[in-house]
Amino acid sequence: MIMIRANNISMNFGMIKALKNVSFELEAGKILGLVGDNGAGKSTLLKILCGYLQPTSGEIYIEDKRVQFKSSADAMKEGVAITHQFLELVDMATAWENFFMGREITGKGVGPFKLLDINQMKELTRKAIEKYGLSIDLECEVGKLSGEERQIIAVARAIESDPKILLLDESFTLLSLEGREELVNFLKKVNQQHNVTMIIVSHDLELVKNLTHKIMVLRGGEKIFYGDTEEVSVDQIVEFMLPQE
């Protein structure tokens, strides 16, 4: 089954054409690696897929249903979760507040005046991040945590929202080598056990080769290559990415 299909997606920022008629489709349970040089349009495409940006033209289908996201909330309702390049966390808020941002759990109360179930949110946050071997003070402001700890919270938050499609935008950047390996293993496990479709943007081509089933190379907003990861070597990917004479 095709989980996501994009038809002729274009995005203009004034005179700049960030994306030019990009089309692709991805089967359910597959991981797509989106690669390209700076300004190739990777993050723009991801922001369109998660509803943060609206394309100038083009169509998106999820499970063969046409979707038009006006906001990230619309995309989340359709099961699309994302972790952004610059960690969409609120530094002043605690780990559990960040973890349940936008999907808070309520308990006692009347009608719309329900109180937050803070204990349950803390407990679920603790359990979720412990899967990554992370043990932190849940009342600590995330701005005071290390880059790796913050990254894990952001990724774990996206995974725990039980998405159909998980978008990861440079989610490995702030991790140590060990942290990267752990996250790669965890993502593989999530992909296999929960059949979550993933689209990953990363500059680390070895990591992309190791983790993904499909690769799409973008250059100057255009799709240059799309195919099975096994079909291409890292050198070939680099060649696709480089500007042509």
Binding site: C50, A75, H84, M101
Partner: peptide, 10 residues
């Protein structure tokens, strides 16, 4: 704290 992050999280 971070309006953009909130928008991204719906």
């Amino acid at each position: 704290g971070n309006a953009d992050a909130c928008a991204a999280m719906g």
